[in-house]
Design a protein around this nucleic acid. Structure first.
Lengths: 379, 379
DNA sequence: GACACTTCCTTCGATATCGAAGATATGGCG
DNA sequence: CGCCATATCTTCGATATCGAAGGAAGTGTC
């Protein structure tokens, strides 16, 4: 994160604007309740925001037994956020309004191995392209953010020791983007962005684990409503040792990592050994739907291993929700096996109200997450 | 937690008083920096607190290159907290001033199996006794708190499904104490209190795991400077399945729990099989110091198992510090083995700045933790 | 020891927030 | 339909906070 606030708002105004943008508040009364400010102060600030053209009043909401609230919304002209989710072989790009609603999203092929400068410049060109062709004119860009498929040092916005991003190690991504856009810039691990985005689909739940099951196994953690970064690598579960019979060496140099057995890559390798060749982890879903026994059995085994790792974390962390996303999450046996392992082995107190479910937020989760985090930097 | 604020302080005053009480601030200038209030506002509030007799001005601090600050301290007459740490066979009782400094501490035998009403009434009698004999007269009691060796529902102050506290299940501890003292009452799991107390000895570290190695294995978690409770059972690591050869059934009904191998109770049982009989887990320390090979080997094995469980949690949670306390923590091989396992197996990013060390805060940690949490309810 | 510089704390007018009271709009009920 | 209860929003005087300016009490330097 870098850059400065760009919106002409003072202290309390930003707080109010954020509450409206995130959809938590729809009226002055909501704002008073959520912000803790007096109703009269809210009215004054809202008045200023209306005059500044950042908020608009639009019709009225539903009555809660008394006078109907006058509904407040973010002005469409308040601005845009440009966000991306960088994967190993493709990137998802989007324009969001300040409330985090996507105005335009597209997916393009992109080889991350081309190196940081090429990829980031290409990404920025793609942003400019989107802005030119898909954005209503006169809407200012307020922030830029991207997800990275590897560890990111949140303070510096650098990539730190990525395993599958040759040439990116220690590259100052935020700085590079900041040089092109004089705006708040967000650089964050992709699983973390997914967690932030997914968390918005679980109102009322403040502690979540969000799994990303694809080629690898990622995980983002929301504690008390906020992304937990630890020292920058928090949420990793893929290099945990699992209990298995044959010993397999993981690319990280340790034996028997979860990733070496339960990741999409590992499943594809195992299928290939059985003579079934697929291109992408997502193709495994089709095999499972078609009831190909090898695939189903492998997926179930992966779920069991993931579940066993989760037992430790569920006892320790006591989340409200474990949301399973990523390309493998559509496989029902996967989630079923995870549930079985967790519910069997964990403390009753820890699983009493625990929900283990497929992710709800759809393909744009990471973009939504980037938008949510960027909003904090912009307001 | 229940009861109301008792101190006659309004909003900002409480915040300032807390900063002084916790030792974070010693002067008006400190208060201004830490509270975010303007220096002028701080002066006004401090003036009121001085007049109310809650703060006193006492000499001057050391210069930081300019005028020396006028040192502020909590008035001794501001009040007292009565805190206890209930164990299976003994209880530690203390009186603290509002800054959390112990004025009197004592340990008494006490059988928790006598049931909640008997134990709690006995505890309250002991508090009254301490107040009568050890407290300067005229110092009002401001809050009461106790640690419980089992899970506590933080909202209701009830014990929930304890394993070694017959008769306590679902008992409303906070309510019972609240009926006797019309004051803020705190009831919390003992490992959690220990974590809160220990965290104060690690300034600058916001994410900690604090282990309590004794008869059982407890763990408290501090995330972002605050105790993480999850749904009430967070921090449990004792019923995690470990990789061992012979299968042993744990009292919880599952095979191969960490507790069944690495707890003080398990070590004592294993020593007994080798013909070495000890009374308490703490006695094992002596055996290790005397280089009794069976003891050393067992302790090292326990450390390795604990360390293996911690690898998962370190990768996931990325703490700054793992502090190891409890009666077994004085055994050097235990911590050495934990360190070895964690540093060998965890991601470099997660262990880069991780400190694994014996707990620093001494025997009164839990009492200090209770004081720290109570302070939030009192101010 | 005079001087510049730093930090601490207070004074005082400007500004932001509060809270009680009232104005406005709505649903429910006899 | 009239009236009450409820909720939303505004008005306005009281209060709390701020911030700039300045006084007080140090340190360090020549």
């Amino acid at each position: 994160m870098s850059g400065k606030e760009r919106l002409p708002v003072t202290g309390a105004q930003g707080e109010l604007l954020r509450l409206v943008a995130t959809g938590q508040a729809e009226s002055r009364a909501d704002l008073a309740r959520l912000s803790g400010l007096a109703a009269s102060s809210v009215s004054l600030r809202v008045e200023e925001l209306l005059e500044a053209g950042l908020l608009v009043e639009e019709g009225s909401g539903t009555s809660r037994g008394g006078r109907r609230p006058r509904r407040l919304r973010l002005a469409p002209s308040a601005g845009l956020l440009a966000v991306a989710d960088l994967g190993s072989h493709h990137v998802r790009l989007g324009l969001l309004d300040l409330s985090g609603t996507p105005l335009a999203v597209q997916e393009r092929a992109c080889d991350i191995a081309a190196g940081p400068e090429a990829v980031l410049d290409w990404m920025a060109d793609a942003f400019d392209d989107l802005l030119r062709t898909r954005a209503p004119s006169g809407m200012p860009l307020r922030g830029v953010g991207t997800g990275i498929p590897g560890p990111v040092d949140p303070a510096s916005g650098r990539v730190v020791g990525p395993s599958r991003m040759p040439g990116w190690n220690n590259y100052p991504v935020a700085e590079h983007l900041g040089a092109r856009y004089d705006l708040p810039v967000l650089v964050e691990n992709d699983a973390n962005l997914m967690a932030v985005g997914e968390a918005r689909s679980w109102p009322g739940s403040d502690n979540l684990m969000v799994l990303k099951t694809g080629t690898g196994i990622g995980c983002g953690v929301i504690v008390n409503g906020h992304l937990h970064r630890g020292r920058g690598a928090a949420g990793d579960i893929s290099h945990v040792r699992v209990r298995t019979d044959p010993s397999v060496m993981c690319s990280c140099g340790h034996p028997d990592c979860l990733e070496a057995y339960a990741s999409g890559a590992a499943l594809m390798a195992a299928l290939a050994e059985a003579g079934i060749v697929v291109d992408r982890p997502a193709d495994i879903i089709g095999l499972v739907s078609d009831a190909v026994p090898e695939a189903t059995s492998l997926v179930r085994g992966a779920g069991r291993l993931i579940g066993e790792v989760l037992t430790v974390l569920v006892n320790f962390f006591n989340p409200d929700v474990i949301a399973v996303g990523g390309s493998l999450s559509a496989a029902e046996p996967l989630i079923a096996a995870i549930r079985a392992a967790v519910y069997e082995r964990c403390l009753p107190l820890a699983t009493r109200d625990l929900e283990i479910a497929p992710a709800r937020a759809g393909k744009d989760v990471a973009l939504l997450g980037a938008g949510a985090l960027l909003l904090d930097a912009v307001l």
